[in-house]
Design a protein around this nucleic acid. Structure first.
Lengths: 339, 339
DNA sequence: AACGCTAATCTAAACGTTTCGAATGTGTCA
DNA sequence: TGACACATTCGAAACGTTTAGATTAGCGTT
């Protein structure tokens, strides 16, 4: 900027003024300055600007795994939204590990991000300290967090699973296996409630041996399914509460020599591009990823625009059951269908 | 830092010295300063540091679409690698649009990223200017770029498709449909050559009506497949040069009432987690995503470590044909198999 | 002609670091 | 005792912006 000022024979203040339009400067000087900028190929240094202004026009986004298609989609939407608003996005993957998440958040805070969108992990860790005192607004994504009272956008997980399991019950299933992730993660907790309530509403018992817990990965779904399928009185249907784990479920079914939906019905959480391409076409609970991403972005952008004092806002969106053909009717229902 | 200095009754220079270990300071002062840092809860301002040091410890990463599973995986690997090295990653999606890419790169450059990893789009645009004069090292990912002579890591696309198509030919296929993306993208160009050479090597004619071009999206694959399948003498196999497009291919086959592999064989580029879970299990060319991501990160980290003068390095990795059951043997071969 | 008003421009301080060179204190040696 | 080396600490400039307030010039009033 100094060079531009010299070339245009003005002060740096005047250059700054035309760059930002913060003061009226004569057409003559404006012209001279713009010419100098072009000649020199000057680009304003955003770091110096950030230092002075106290804002970086950058936000931090952390998710457990970007390879989980739900997060892939949401990250994509959020990135686009902030791009439109002139913000850059720093992406971090916490690998479902609390220490990693704490490190990442510190990294982001050190870099003075203007805001944070977090699909939290563990108990939230350092997050609890930040939301209270720091001046960087935080939006929780997908997962609420005890002790972190801030803006959030989540799904009505309980209702979504309730509907899915009720659907299985209506098909005639009585023993429905359930594979969940760590129950200290709010969606996992809520989904489990939905499962239990659906059974209870139908007057069915909740058999604890049908409930298996894993750590979100394919291998966990595989192991859980293996256990369920080797049960004395094995379930006729399995609901997997997470997408990567359902891959394991399908592989376990294949490896054990069974087939879906003939021998066992399968449904799961989170839709993905391939779910209706192959055989079987998977019945899933689709999350409104576009809306989730956009709402999260909007909540944060609103705070960034200055609305700091409004009380925390919690948005709860609805899932949608995508009925395909990975679940088959049982008993009398099966008769009437095949008749 | 000023507050810390005051609290510890020292100068800011001394605080900086203990923070960075750049000078010897007495145990006594060190102790007092560290105490003050804890008391105040001081965090060093990375922006001010960046301004002074001329480095942000942040890199920019742009990909066409993060929802393409190939890029999802590579982004994930790259993010992890830089995280380990203490760098933050700014992610941008260019949506396969050159103007968007130019905007994104400008955004990243404005923010003074220390380096850039780019899966380029179009003809590279602004990229050409940057590599020459700027002092930010650039690594090309997946796609080379005419006029941009810099570090790069790509696949041996030609060979990979050659092998895949040769495999189809060995199965007895003679008319093999080919669906490609824009041919100004180096991988698409090279893959096409691999296709043509495989046919020629087997003494087969290259039928231009079997080659269809799309814009990387599912819908393009769908339309292209529809056209191929309504050909008078339709192909017995289709190779799709890109992953999202093969979804369209599978959907078109389904919608037209055919089935894979009975009526038509399908193979495609890029493996993905579901490829061996459903029926049919897709035969794919798997890219070594882990290696690609790590090598790209290493090339850039090496430049960032100061190795600026080495001539551009181009890494070419090998793909691997994952043979599953979406391609069936034809003619005499089919006889011998079914016998 | 002196005055005040407005518009245009500039000077200089600030943002929070790093770092060079100077200053201070201490001990060693002739 | 003075000269010198060395270790420790500090003052102040610099990085490239923004911006409050000062300055200057031009112009209409009285």
């Amino acid at each position: 900027m100094l060079h531009v000022a010299e070339a245009a024979r003005v002060s740096v203040a005047t250059v700054s003024a035309v760059l930002n339009g913060t003061a009226t400067v004569s057409p003559e000087l404006t012209q001279r300055i713009e010419q100098a900028i072009r000649d020199i190929g000057y680009k304003r240094n955003a770091i110096a600007r950030s230092l002075k202004m106290g804002t970086t026009r950058t936000i931090g986004l952390t998710v457990p795994h970007i390879t989980n298609p739900f997060f892939t989609d949401v990250v994509s939407v959020i990135q686009q939204a902030f791009d439109r608003a002139g913000y850059a996005v720093m992406l971090c993957c916490t690998d479902e590990d609390l220490n990693t998440q704490d490190d990442q958040i510190r990294l982001l805070l050190d870099r003075m991000v203007d805001g944070l969108i977090v699909a939290r992990v563990g108990d939230g860790g350092i997050l609890k300290g930040i939301v209270g005192d720091a001046n960087v607004p935080v939006v929780l994504l997908d997962r609420l967090c005890e002790g972190v009272d801030t803006d959030a956008v989540v799904l009505d997980n309980q209702r979504a699973v309730f509907d899915a399991v009720t659907y299985l019950i209506h098909l005639g299933h009585r023993r429905i296996g359930y594979i969940t992730g760590a129950s200290d993660i709010s969606p996992m907790h809520d989904r489990m409630i939905g499962y239990r309530e659906a059974l209870q509403a139908a007057g069915l018992p909740v058999a604890e041996e049908l409930i298996r817990s894993g750590n979100f990965h394919e291998i966990d779904g595989y192991n859980a399914t293996m256990q369920l399928l080797s049960l004395h009185d094995r379930p006729s249907a399995i609901f997997s509460a997470n997408n990567p784990m359902v891959i394991g479920t399908m592989k376990a079914i294949r490896d054990i020599g069974l087939s879906c939906p003939e021998d066992i019905s399968v449904a799961c959480f989170d839709d993905f591009p391939w779910s209706d391409v192959f055989v079987p076409q998977l019945t899933t609970v689709a999350q409104p990823v576009q809306a989730i991403g956009e709402q999260a972005a909007n909540l944060l952008l609103d705070r960034l625009a200055g609305n700091r004092e409004a009380p925390p806002r919690k948005l709860v969106l609805k899932g949608r059951l995508m009925i395909r053909n990975s679940c088959r009717p049982l008993g009398a229902l099966a008769q009437s269908v095949s008749a």
